[in-house]
Write a protein that binds this DNA or RNA. Structure first.
Lengths: 220, 220
DNA sequence: GCCTTGACACGAACAGCGTTCGCCGCTAGA
DNA sequence: TCTAGCGGCGAACGCTGTTCGTGTCAAGGC
């Protein structure tokens, strides 16, 4: 009945319905009509359970089939972000861990292969993978926060509440002294414009452009 | 005796000595030899207290005096990262919030001014600020995690434990099938090389290079 | 067959958490 | 003098992760 796989399944279901903070050992155990102590025969502690949940999510990632490192980095980043975003704030579980599952390793291998073949130095390729992964997870997590953290239990749509937060920021910005913040005030529209997806795209494209400049010129 | 400023001071001291998770209303209240209920006359809840702590930290930031947006983005990012890192894992408090303190606004204004003057489109400038801020906070937070999360209470140095984590990863990677992961295995050194600072620098430089390519060519 | 060991299961309890409720004392203003 | 508002705070609520001790079962050894 119980087993680590079943426990991880249950925890992931809770993440999917209510987010990472809703996962308590009691909640998970309740899925099996038992108490939290029963889980400790299978997982060392809650941290380990959440790590296993994260591993489960990473193993969902479908690695795109691409011919250039730019395409793979772009498509892969989107895929990873989308995968995280299917699981509420699960992206937060990735901070500080090197992914070691098969999917992650396959992606790493393929990306390194394409980058090295294109003349990107190995160190640059390795750091690119690190930096982009961190950025993707941070964006996925913040995107969730912006969508959910404004849920104040009033029953109103948290996303709408998030929009109201940004509207409030824009209003407060608009009252800033023009003498001190002329550029900001003149460009409030741009400051508040765009969707999270557009911002994410922008960041990825900037990193790709920056890294491309590191590739050996005679191999581009 | 009590007051929001004093409460934020106390919470920040706890962050500085033991990290964000050590901040509980009881802990903060104990700094005043009282109980947690006493705090609620001054702060709405724990979330608000942590937001105020974050604002306090952001107000520490010293904005560098730079003549180009590249210099300012580089130096500013380092300064912000350093500021966060003086406060354990405080960087995690920044996710999902638009900074509205004086220091943050001054930095925004100066950076926008320099970027626009250099021909960077307003939308690009705005998104650059967003993306870089997110990256800086994520790096600061993950840097803390890597330094601290391995503290297992055994009294051994958590940073050493972190190094051991990475050594373990390298060992496990080294046992991967060479037929499936030839590039990864051939470049394990690069995968594991470098310091967190180097990685951070790399990410910032890549973003700067990518954004520079967005500047109007006749204004560079 | 009996005993031992290990694995699994789980109730009770511990020490902690954020927050609310109700009460109290003090001050300022009517 | 009375009232309202503010600040303070104890007790309690419902929740948290985890440990300890006990029980059951199966497998292996004697």
């Amino acid at each position: 009945m119980l087993g680590v796989d079943a426990i991880v399944d249950a925890a992931l279901r809770i993440v999917d319905s209510e987010g990472v903070d809703a996962v308590s050992m009691r909640r998970v155990a309740a899925e099996f009509s038992t108490g939290p102590a029963s889980l400790y025969a299978h997982v060392a502690n809650k941290d380990q359970l959440l790590t296993l949940v994260h591993d489960r999510i990473v193993d969902e990632i479908e690695i795109p089939d691409c011919d250039t490192w730019q395409e793979l980095l772009r498509a892969g980043s989107h895929t990873i972000r989308d995968t995280y975003r299917r699981h509420n704030d699960a992206a937060r579980l990735s901070f500080g861990f090197v992914p070691e599952g098969t999917k992650a390793l396959d992606y790493t291998e393929r990306l390194m292969e394409l980058m090295l073949a294109a003349g990107v130095p190995a160190q640059v390729a390795a750091w690119t993978l690190d930096v982009v992964s961190l950025y993707v997870a941070a964006d996925a997590y913040e995107g969730w926060l912006l969508g959910q953290r404004f849920d104040d239990g009033s029953g109103r749509d948290p996303e709408q509440l998030g929009h109201e937060y940004f509207a409030g920021v824009a209003e407060r910005f608009a009252t800033l002294p023009a003498g001190r913040y002329p550029v900001l005030l003149a460009n409030l529209g741009a400051m508040m414009a765009g969707t999270g997806d557009e911002r994410f795209d922008f960041g990825i494209e900037m990193l790709i452009a920056g890294v491309a400049a590191q590739a050996s010129p005679d191999r581009d």
